[in-house]
Write a protein that binds this DNA or RNA. Structure first.
Length: 594
RNA sequence: GCGCCCGUAGCUCAGUUGGAUAGAGUGUUGGCCUCCGAAGCCAAAGGUCGUGGGUUCGAGUCCCGCCGGGCGCGCCA
């Protein structure tokens, strides 16, 4: 519809271009938008306002010329010029009613398009370190990323969903050491747990499991382990330093001690046990949340393939790596970053950044036309250095889009629910899902713009009333199903073709409003996908549900008149279809009964 | 201190490449079920769009200053 009108305007511009009033060289994009007020028609174009300057004519005058040159269309009933030079289009009822047929014919494919023309786009999201269960912050990234991926797929991109598994870094070693220490505690050893260790209860659970399966096979005396280690930094309950020390050096030395005392095979086993147990849990959690990946990409595999070294050598050969204070630095400041960054520490360990460079280069080498990373907003400072590295490697950094997701803050009974990662008392995604359900969680997470802080109202998410937008939308869907059930129970006939033949009967204002809402769906999907803004779809679905509830409240569907009843049934079923399609993109179920 | 994000109704938030009279939900007040699901609908009230300038036919939207909030500024991830 929109492109149809744009074509009409484009045709109208041609004679003006021929007579030199407008430059004919380039074809301007035709601005056309939905009106906010129906007294201004259905669509409005500001083309006359935009071209007035170059044409050196008054906008209204130009608008008149354009309107005079518009070809006739059987879908347009009236064209008006208004205000400073808006061109308002009024569509015929038939033009709107046609959307019902389109929806009933295309079904779950309605709203999909080929706009992306099969271009390959990679969406990497969540990618939380497998050092503990996912918490509610990760949940937002999961819901957001999954929906962005769904949206892009819907408009014709070939989407590759990927989770980058940080299974090689220092944090994994710290997890292994933490696991070992909890195991030793379980075996009766006494010592102070390192301040930088993982304190979560889940570590204890794995440790207990280890003991059940292997008894005392991993026991080493605490005295032997902690002998001559760098002093840990010790704080009291208030967070004040009691004993100063270097907690990083302490934990690194502890890891090293574990390797030596246990020997590589036993250390390896601990490492794998921690990693696999937690990663399995994350996989399971996400899968239950309706988030599925095409690939779980291992950082360790990347490192073992030599890709990290190879990439650093390329940077070095290009002259962008130098040594200072015993460490290797990447000259990211040459590409707009605030300062240079360490890629290899003084102790010879690669930084995460080094792996990330290799990983992103590898993404590009895999041939994706477009790469999207979804990160927590606290990582925003990281964006310039990754782009700098890509540029230094001769890649176009614009092929990478980094989308930042702000934190979600949980509220219960109007109070902020506490979340502390350090103490291990955080609310996990799994707990959230169990409390409010997957549907509410998926919807609430994407209800707000991603760069906006999200206040997640747990009580609202659980409530079964119109206050809860999820139930409100699902209820509209269920209502239509309920009407169909009524139809069968009353033994009334239904004839879809007869309904299609009498769509003209859908002339009530509420019906027109519903038809308009339905016709907007493909536009919403497109804009939500291209702008990576799932909240637009969420808001739209609420509006659509509202249009239906309003209509439903005012008019009966199951009337005696066969033609009218069938037309209204078609309209209702089309509404149900669009709600179902939209909810599917959001990963929310569309129940027949509630 | 520097960088990024945010500031719109009491509260939570939309606001389509800059467009016409700034919109929803919630809360408050008052209505609507002999009728397909009231898990719903309707109405009223509620605003110097943080603030001061600038750009132009036109600014919530773009630019600059200031105020307020969040995040980031490590050989941590």
């Amino acid at each position: 519809m929109k492109t149809h009108l744009q074509n009409l305007i484009a045709q109208a511009l041609q004679p003006l271009q021929r007579e030199g009033l407008l430059p004919s060289a380039e074809r301007p994009v035709i601005p056309l938008e939905r009106t906010r007020d129906r007294t201004h028609g259905d669509f409005a174009s500001t083309i006359a306002l935009a071209l007035a300057k170059t044409a050196r004519r008054k906008p209204r005058e130009l608008a008149e010329r354009i309107v005079a040159a518009l070809p006739v269309s059987d879908q347009v009933v009236k064209v008006e010029i208004a205000g400073p030079g808006f061109i308002n289009f009024f569509l015929t009822p038939a033009a709107y009613q046609a959307v019902v047929g389109e929806i009933l014919e295309r079904r779950e494919r309605f709203g999909r398009s080929g706009l992306g023309s099969g271009q390959r786009v990679q969406v990497e999201f969540v990618s939380a370190n497998p050092t503990g269960p996912l918490h509610v912050g990760h949940g937002r990234g999961a819901a957001f990323g999954a929906t962005v991926a769904n949206l892009l797929e819907a408009i014709g991109y070939q989407v590759h969903r990927e989770y980058y598994v940080n299974d090689a870094g220092r944090q994994m070693n710290i997890l292994a050491a933490s696991l070992w220490l909890r195991y030793l505690e379980h075996c009766g050893e006494k010592f102070r747990f390192p301040s930088n260790g993982y304190r979560g209860e889940y570590v204890r659970d794995i440790a207990v499991q280890l003991y059940i399966e292997h008894g005392g096979a991993y026991v080493v005396s605490a005295r032997q382990i902690f002998r001559d280690l760098p002093q840990d930094e010790i704080r009291d309950g208030n967070g004040d330093v009691v004993t100063p020390g270097d907690k990083e050096a302490h934990i690194d030395a502890l890891v090293e001690r574990a390797r030596v005392l246990l020997g590589e095979p036993r250390y390896r086993y601990l490492f794998e046990l921690g990693l696999n147990t937690i990663l399995d849990d994350i996989r399971d959690d996400l899968q239950q949340f309706g988030v599925v990946y095409d690939e779980w990409y291992s950082e360790r595999a990347l490192a073992e393939s030599g890709a990290v070294n190879k990439t650093l050598n390329r940077l070095r050969d290009a002259g962008y790596v130098y040594e200072q204070d015993g460490a290797q630095w990447f000259r990211s400041s040459a590409f707009g970053d605030e300062k240079d960054r360490v890629v290899e520490r003084e102790n010879g360990q690669m930084t995460y950044f080094a792996s990330d460079i290799a990983y992103h280069l590898e993404k590009f080498e895999r041939g994706f036309d477009w790469v999207i990373d979804i990160w927590g907003a606290d990582h925003h400072g990281y964006v310039p250095r990754v782009k700098a590295a890509l540029q230094a490697l001769g890649e176009n950094p614009d092929r990478l889009d980094v989308l930042l997701v702000q934190f979600a803050i949980l509220y219960r009974h109007g109070e902020r629910a506490p979340m502390s990662t350090r103490s291990g008392e955080f609310v996990t995604l799994r707990e959230l899902r169990q409390e409010v359900g997957n549907d509410a969680a998926r919807f609430f997470y994407v209800m707000r713009k991603s760069e906006q802080h999200l206040d997640f109202d747990l009580d609202l998410a659980k409530s079964q009333s119109k206050d809860n937008p999820v139930y409100y939308i699902q209820y509209a869907h269920a209502r239509v199903s309920s009407v169909l059930k009524q139809l069968r129970e009353k033994g009334l006939p239904r004839d879809e073709a007869r309904g299609q033949a009498h769509l003209a009967l859908l002339s009530e204002p509420h019906e027109e409003a519903l038809l308009v809402a339905l016709s907007r769906y493909p536009e919403i999907v497109e804009i939500a996908a291209l702008d990576h803004e799932p909240h637009q779809l969420a808001h739209y679905l609420r509006e659509l549900a509202n249009a239906f509830h309003t209509y439903y409240n005012e008019h009966r569907v199951l009337v005696d008149d066969d033609a009218l009843r069938d037309a209204r049934l078609n309209l209702s079923l089309a509404t149900r279809q669009v709600i179902s399609n939209g909810l599917a993109l959001l990963g929310v179920s569309a129940p027949e009964v509630m």
